[in-house]
């Protein structure tokens, strides 16, 4: 609830400031927001559907046996690899991760997924190689993957 209040007040303040400074630019901002929303909408819808299906078909027991305490280390590694190879916008991945966490997934597995998702980009690697070079790309992504595993382990200890 507090998150929502903070976000909505932030938006309200930005809107007022923006309107005071320029009506035209405010209109443009709305346009940009609308376009970004339309672009993201399909993946948001898809994730909604996947979350729905996941929780409709699997009960909490099955989920926690897949990504929870019992699944152990291998589940964490699989989550990390999945995070590294998929290109899900994190905006869209957080709701799914949150729901898995709430139904018994371990913090280590979820943070491994989230961290590799944002730190390692297999899908964007070809573009990265083209602009920044092979060495740079391989170093950045492999170090990122290692760091992600470390971060996940530390998060499991702290949280």
């Amino acid at each position: 609830m507090t998150t929502l209040i903070i976000i909505y007040s932030l938006v309200a303040v930005s809107l007022i400031l923006s309107l005071i400074k320029s009506k035209e630019k405010t209109k443009k901002a709305m346009n940009v927001a609308g376009k970004a929303f339309v672009k993201t909408a399909p993946s948001l819808l898809a994730v909604l559907g996947i979350v729905g299906l996941t929780f409709g078909i699997l009960d909490e027991q099955t989920i926690s046996s897949l990504v929870g305490e019992e699944a152990g280390f291998s589940a964490t590694i699989i989550a990390a690899v999945l995070g590294a190879i998929t290109l899900i916008p994190s905006l869209v991945a957080f709701p799914l991760a949150g729901s898995l966490l709430r139904s018994g997934a371990t913090v280590v597995t979820i943070s491994a997924f989230i961290t590799t998702l944002v730190m390692v980009g297999m899908v964007t690697a070809p573009m990265e190689i083209k602009t920044l070079g092979t060495k740079f790309t391989i170093l950045r992504n492999s170090l990122g993957f290692l760091a992600a595993l470390l971060i996940a382990a530390v998060m499991g200890v702290i949280l």
Binding site: L4, L48, V51, T54, F55, G56, P95
Partner: peptide
């Protein structure tokens, strides 16, 4: 069951996404 889970998530997302996109726009 699935539809209920979907509806729950839809409600949560519907509240948070519009301000996030507006902020991105600004």
């Amino acid at each position: 069951h699935s539809s209920l889970a979907l509806w729950d998530y839809f409600k949560e997302m519907a509240l948070i996404m519009p301000p996030v996109f507006l902020l991105m726009g600004f």
